[in-house]
């Protein structure tokens, strides 16, 4: 089963920058039942395999508890893996010590969700952005300051404001500061953990465009995390839909929107409110029942089966394998016993 769960879309024509193999991350649950002997675990990420091509953007999409943020922190090795491999640029870094990880810290960076929590409120913006230089001993004094100001300019901030504190900036500007910090050492890979979901609509578009511009300019590779499918359409080349620690469907962006195969993807797509009254009144929503189950005791068989409108007996017993559809050439893989056909997807 291990081998089958690999991203079944190997792209020999593309240069893989990041490869995840069977990544598993469990968190122990601290509960009152200490004397029971067996400890419960949150199955945050449960066997995820993925290839990320250099210079491209892959989006990880899913709701609360699907493990997307945990996966992001496994990639950047902020967390140790329970098992599996993270291969960056050909080297397996999943068991690297902190010291051995240091050179990789320069090559992969992270942009965080919360524009308020991700910047230290007691430090000046200039010194926050310069952190990367300080830690890795790059540039000193005036040169460092010049580099910081260059970065601020790059992300659309006034370089004269390097002496200000984060509280003096709005949410969108703070997110730009976070981007500047992440780009300081010219990373190859940037993991964006819901970078715009805390921002106002008119500002979201500004930040998304900035990220796209920077990708073109600097040849960045993005892993872009989002909780719904509305934002990622513009930024990603490929999308992986996650549910309870697993990838349930992965496809090229246009393909996923045009031909969703997994009932969960379909429900996610139909749940996104469309800002067009006529479309909104015409389309039929696929309403799921209930909430996402606890990742401590995930359902047996297919994890989506208790909420799935298409579930049958086999779904509760047998765990479907993420695999390519017959005759598929675009690398559209789905983990479902009864995937949707072309006509069945929502409008």
């Amino acid at each position: 089963m291990t081998a089958e769960l690999r991203d079944p879309s190997p792209r020999t024509d593309e240069d893989v920058l990041l490869r995840l193999e069977e990544v598993v991350k469990y968190f122990p649950v601290t509960s009152a039942k200490v004397f029971r002997g067996k400890r419960d675990h949150v199955h945050a990420v449960d066997g995820v395999s993925l290839d990320v091509a250099r210079g491209k953007t892959i989006a990880l999409v899913g709701e609360t508890g699907c493990g997307k943020s945990t996966l992001a922190r496994c990639i950047t090795r902020l967390y140790d893996l329970t098992s599996g491999k993270v291969v960056f640029d050909g080297e397996d870094i999943s068991n690297h010590s902190r010291r051995r990880l240091r050179p990789y810290r320069r090559k992969m960076q992270m942009i965080f969700q919360d524009p308020y929590g991700s910047l230290n409120p007691r430090r000046r913006v200039g010194s926050i952005i310069a952190d990367a230089f300080t830690i890795h001993g790059v540039a000193e004094g005036e040169e460092r300051k010049a580099k910081v100001q260059e970065l601020m300019e790059l992300v659309g901030l006034n370089p004269e404001h390097f002496n200000r504190f984060p509280a003096e900036f709005s949410g969108g500007q703070r997110q730009r500061i976070g981007i500047a910090r992440a780009l300081a050492l010219h990373p190859q890979l940037v993991v964006c953990d819901e970078p715009v979901s805390a921002l106002d609509v008119s500002i979201q578009a500004q930040v998304i465009n900035l990220l796209a511009d920077l990708q073109d300019e600097l040849g960045l590779t993005y892993v872009f995390i989002a909780h719904d499918l509305s934002v990622v359409r513009h930024v990603s080349d490929r999308i992986a839909v996650m549910y309870l620690g697993r990838i349930v469907e992965i496809a090229d962006t246009d393909d996923l929107y045009a031909r969703p195969r997994h009932p969960y993807t379909n429900a996610l797509l139909s749940a996104v409110p469309v800002p067009d009254p006529d479309v909104a009144s015409r389309r039929e929503r696929v309403l799921l029942v209930g909430d996402v189950p606890s990742p401590i005791h995930p359902p047996t068989g297919c994890r989506f089966h208790p909420r799935c409108p298409r579930a049958q007996e086999v779904c509760a017993v047998e765990d479907p394998v993420l695999s390519l559809q017959q005759g598929d050439r675009t690398g559209h893989a789905v983990a479902c016993h009864f995937p949707l056909t072309d006509g069945e997807a929502h409008a």
């Binding site: 902190r98 810290r105 992270m110 965080f112 929590g117 830690i135």
Partner: peptide, 17 residues
């Protein structure tokens, strides 16, 4: 638990820093 601590760690900052 704040994200800025995570950010520092992902930049490679050590415990003392």
């Amino acid at each position: 638990e704040k994200e800025f601590v995570e950010a520092a760690r992902s930049l490679g900052a050590g415990d003392l820093r």
